[in-house]
Design a protein around this nucleic acid. Structure first.
Lengths: 207, 207
DNA sequence: GACGAATTGGACAAGTCTGTCTAAAAAAAT
DNA sequence: ATTTTTTTAGACAGACTTGTCCAATTCGTC
């Protein structure tokens, strides 16, 4: 029911969404929707709330797989990036949420306020904590972990943003290549570079 | 007229946009709109075309101010980033276009096809050429200029994406700080690192 | 001033959508 | 098996939009 709402709202926008269509897609009668949610606005709010919740839950689940003790830093970070993109950013909920925010974020910012503080706010700060730990353990050289976390996310999303806007499906290969390039650059910026010997080893490995 | 269309389409989405409202905002009668553009779809196409054209034109204008012979690489790149963001990404047209693509890109991809090849396609490849020149001149250490160009854009947009989605206006200070952080990371990844002496000079400057 | 073209305001039909109402049917609970 | 709750199908009023038509008016130009 909320699922059908998400599909239709996302496809047609709030104004263009047709409650009859949502009812059909959900396999219930229109009246049932009105019984449950009252009116279109409340249904929309419920849809946004549901997706927000699922999205942040999933993001934290994936955060739990962060490589705190990496064997191969670059490979492990790349795998993590792929998991994150697949499950939180380019999955259906992630696309829905991004699109809904773009469409209605300016008109109904209050609907997305909880996403803003509970989503990016908390996820990035949690990711920053993981990066800080890696830096402390000597795997990375980071000044500001919060900045690094935001940039990590931005880099791994670089080449997927435009295809995602047009609803194109991304193959595993594209995704892996994109993640690998992004992590490569991330490590060029934040890879350990302190001691001379250590650095040359790093550089050799990277090349 | 197209301007009023842009405002309304962008605010309400294609389905929610009201032609009467566009007419009022444009200061003409509804009939005049129908005389000029035929119907709602054609008006929308005209609006998208207009904005696309203005956007890419501006992007190339700003590209002309790229620091080919930088006195202070970091400062010059930061200024360039600020110009680019201000005039091409966070200006009214840029925001409109991004929003329209998110809202209607999946339903009417053909409308944005010319943007896709003429906009990001050409702009990034032109930006890549500039970076390649900087690398050739010894200012940067870049493997793939196209990747560097895309990542440069991605980095300078990192902290502005979310505020921009909610229609928030960005102060010059926020913008400058964001650009400075982004260029700092970009140079950590792509700054010259070949010769030992040269590199230490770079590192000293950067610190 | 006069003439042709463009613009205007308003009326209009046809269609869509929301939200309500009702009586019948189905499901759940006792 | 009976009662209570929920769901369903359909009709319906009210509102809103699009796109068309038309007579009156304004504008630009000669």
């Amino acid at each position: 029911m909320l699922d059908a709402g998400a599909r239709v709202f996302c496809g047609e926008g709030f104004a263009g969404a047709n409650i009859d269509l949502i009812a059909v897609e959900a396999g219930v009668s229109r009246q049932t929707i009105y019984n449950h949610y009252g009116d279109k606005d409340k249904l929309f709010a419920a849809v946004v709330g549901e997706i927000t919740e699922r999205c942040t839950a999933r993001a934290f689940a994936v955060l739990g797989t962060f490589p705190d003790h990496p064997a191969d830093l670059e490979a492990d970070l790349t795998d993590f990036a792929i998991r994150f993109i697949r499950n939180c950013v380019c999955d259906r909920d992630g696309k829905f949420l991004r699109k809904l925010i773009h469409m209605e974020g300016e008109r109904h910012p209050e609907l997305f306020a909880s996403w803003r503080i509970g989503g990016p706010g908390k996820v990035w700060s949690a990711l920053a904590a993981r990066f800080a730990r890696l830096a402390f353990a000597g795997f990375l050289d980071i000044d500001d972990p919060d900045v690094a976390a935001r940039q990590f996310f931005s880099l791994i999303f670089t080449d997927l943003q435009i295809p995602s806007m047009f609803g194109e499906v991304l193959s595993d290969e594209e995704l892996a290549r994109s993640a690998s390039i992004a992590v490569g650059t991330f490590l060029r910026a934040y890879g350990r570079r302190k001691a001379g010997a250590e650095q040359s080893r790093e550089t050799a490995l990277r090349a």
